[in-house]
Design a protein around this nucleic acid. Sequence first.
DNA 1: AGAGTCTTCCAAAGCGCTTTGGCTTTTTTG
DNA 2: CAAAAAAGCCAAAGCGCTTTGGAAGACTCT
Lengths: 340, 340
Amino acid sequence: MNLKQLAHMLALSQTTVSRALNGYPEVNEETRRRVMDAAKRHGYRPNPSARRLATGKTGMIGYVLPTGAAVDIDPHFVEFLSGLGDYARSHELDLVLSPADADDQETTYRRIVANRQVDAVYISSPRPADRRVALVNTLGIPFIVHGRSEGFDFDYAFTDIDNEGAFHEAARLLIQLGHRRLALINGDDRETFAIHRERGVRRALAASGLTLGERHVCSVAMTEENGYRATRRLLEEGDAPTAIACSSLIMALGVVRAVRDLGLSIPADVSLIAHDDVFPWLRPENFSVPLSTTRSSIRLAGARVAERLAARISGLEEGARGEVWPVDLVVRGSVAGAPA
Amino acid sequence: MNLKQLAHMLALSQTTVSRALNGYPEVNEETRRRVMDAAKRHGYRPNPSARRLATGKTGMIGYVLPTGAAVDIDPHFVEFLSGLGDYARSHELDLVLSPADADDQETTYRRIVANRQVDAVYISSPRPADRRVALVNTLGIPFIVHGRSEGFDFDYAFTDIDNEGAFHEAARLLIQLGHRRLALINGDDRETFAIHRERGVRRALAASGLTLGERHVCSVAMTEENGYRATRRLLEEGDAPTAIACSSLIMALGVVRAVRDLGLSIPADVSLIAHDDVFPWLRPENFSVPLSTTRSSIRLAGARVAERLAARISGLEEGARGEVWPVDLVVRGSVAGAPA
DNA sequence: AGAGTCTTCCAAAGCGCTTTGGCTTTTTTG
DNA sequence: CAAAAAAGCCAAAGCGCTTTGGAAGACTCT
């Protein structure tokens, strides 16, 4: 059932039917009702390909998915997706994932924009001066960055959490508890979030005249194993830290295991605070010692990004507004005063 | 730059240019070369909307993403996606995720098929007599099921792992080690994979004249917390099992924690085997006691599903061939003879 | 009543591609 | 060498929708 048939069936022109369906004013209310009615009764659904060809709108938002045999998609992604999907559903938006070589995402961005495959895109895990952001900005497609880039001569729209503030608070708490040697087990420090977190820790330390030892900060892929290794290294060397801030709950699993393997305990020997993106399947309160966390739901962020993308597509949101969400510091059993 | 312009520029008809580009035989090789050349030089890229309108082909594969505030996307999904995306990239396929109310995915499948939004779809986490499979089968779009459904009067194409065999082997090993009371901490038993796993365990037990106690099997969402709770319950009641088979590494984290909380140890008091989908961020050999697993890379499955979808789209694969992959049983420290 | 204004609808022209059905040339064949 | 076949190209008809530019009729106003 296409427009033509429907129009013929109603003894109306395609024009009128199309307008009636799309809510244009120049059509009699009575007629509109008839059209709407017939459309519903016959299950008419406009062909999106045709509509797209005519209007250029696709009803889809795009994401370039870095892939490759050695590339692991972040497990956070799925939570983000939950939120994004949940919002997108309510607005009849689909999400198209365009796989790309992790080292050359620009080509794919170019393609999906040139092809008009999507109405908007989002970018995640940005780095400082991220080329994707610069590219997409010049390409002129609506976009939102989840996270922040830095060092551009233009502004852009983003939704980020206050990573620096969160880790500043976390470190400040540890310092107040008497800790003097902190360590940071961070994610990939080429990404902005990790840089911000490190900055937060350093700022807190500096405020008390302390510093983050060179060997007390490490930047690794956020796996359990890396958390373990980093912790072993930190605690087995001289000058071992008495408190650790850790960028993910998954790494924290490794931290806990390492501490235990060394015959130490949390929080008696080592205090631990980790960042919690709020996974349904792994909760900080369920760690053997309930974990103190900086908490921010990545799922909510997904929903928010979708909301803003939808708003931009329909022209309701404009400009380069960035928003930074505060992060909760949730104190649980894994922190205590520094050992004597 | 569109076809018309390109054709005009080459002093050829659109027909010829289109044919030259799409590899049709009725065009002079010399001409083809000229066309190809000019197309590349001017960066001509056919407009996918137009092509789609004309051919009906979209170059996209579809997946209906169950969403909802209370719906958690399985963390396995992201690994599957890694594999799928990796293959899709090499074949210039995009993946479109259509979010749907988790309780009504059929409507969305109908939509994406009716709209010709995708060339093929895949279905994951199927249940017995899964309505999505039945629907998609009648809709006539190429599809692959990741996992298996059951109880249809038609055959369909699927890629699944031998869940029953895997858990049969696991249980058999435990029995050979002298265990008599096994427990199974399973995933959602409305899904086929869970049913098959339970069947595997029961079959192994039956072969030795044993049974799976009613209270020794539980079916829960695969979270750490649920693994913990299930284990507490199992071990605190009378008739506690001496060995546990567990459907996921994430739940196994909870199992380990529960065992430790109860002052017991693995494998001295409880043997444990879990299923490992091969996450890069959580590896069984890194558990405090290295975990015995039934192992099958879900990422490989994703790549395989993509491969088969691509083959079906281009007509290279037909028929309802199902394939079942064997599963490795990897024995590590978490199993031992039954306690006396 | 005639001129101007709305209201309501329509025919037709795209959007950019593929594909059908021919129409010339050139090559092969008996 | 004429007839048949093959090769190479093209004009034009879709695909199904939106949108432009009217046009007919109903209504208002002087």
